[in-house]
Computed example of a mutant assay.
Amino acid sequence: MGQLFCNVSGGTGFVITSSKGLNCEYSPANGAPRQHYIGTINSFGLQLGTQGPGQLTWDVASAGGAVGPGSLAGSFKGASASASVGAGIGTNALFGGLDGGLTLQPLSVQTETGVNVAAGVTNMTLDYAP
Rank of each mutant, 00 (worst) to 15 (best):
T12S: 11
Q3Y: 08
A73N: 02
V67P: 00
G78F: 03
P130Y: 05
Q105P: 01
V15Q: 07
Y37K: 03
S75M: 07
Q110R: 04
S108K: 04
S43Y: 10
G68T: 05
L107E: 10
S75Q: 09
L56T: 15
I89W: 00
G86Y: 14
A29V: 13
G13M: 02
L56Q: 15
Q51L: 15
L104F: 01
V85S: 13
L104W: 01
L56S: 14
E25I: 09
A83P: 00
D59L: 15
P33D: 07
A93F: 04
T103E: 11
A66W: 00
G31R: 06
N42L: 01
G120I: 02
I38D: 13
G114A: 03
I38T: 15
I16V: 10
G64F: 04
F76C: 05
R34I: 11
A83T: 11
A79H: 00
A61P: 06
D99C: 09
I38Y: 04
G49A: 05
G86H: 08
L102N: 01
F76Q: 14
V67G: 13
G39L: 02
T17Y: 02
A81R: 00
C6K: 14
G21A: 13
C6S: 10
L107G: 12
A29Q: 10
I16K: 07
D99N: 15
S62F: 07
L72Q: 05
A29M: 06
G65S: 05
G114C: 05
S62A: 14
D99S: 13
T57Q: 14
G74A: 10
G52F: 07
G78R: 11
L48K: 11
I89T: 12
G31L: 03
Q105F: 13
G10Q: 06
I16R: 10
G114F: 03
P130L: 01
G49H: 09
L72S: 06
G78D: 14
G68N: 14
M124F: 03
L46A: 10
I89A: 08
S80V: 02
V121L: 13
R34F: 09
R34P: 04
S80M: 08
G114P: 06
F44G: 15
P28I: 12
T17W: 02
T91C: 03
G54F: 02
N123T: 15
I41V: 15
M124K: 06
V85H: 12
S62E: 07
S62Y: 08
Q110V: 11
G65D: 00
G101K: 12
A81I: 12
I38K: 13
C6M: 14
G88E: 01
G2E: 04
D59Q: 13
C24V: 09
S80W: 02
G2P: 02
T113H: 00
A93Y: 08
G68Y: 07
G31Q: 06
D99G: 09
H36V: 09
T122K: 02
V85I: 15
G86N: 08
S9T: 14
Q35I: 04
I41Q: 01
G54K: 07
P106Y: 13
S80N: 05
G70V: 14
G13P: 07
D99W: 04
E112M: 08
L72D: 13
G114E: 04
Q3P: 00
C24Y: 04
L104N: 03
N116Q: 15
P130D: 06
V60P: 01
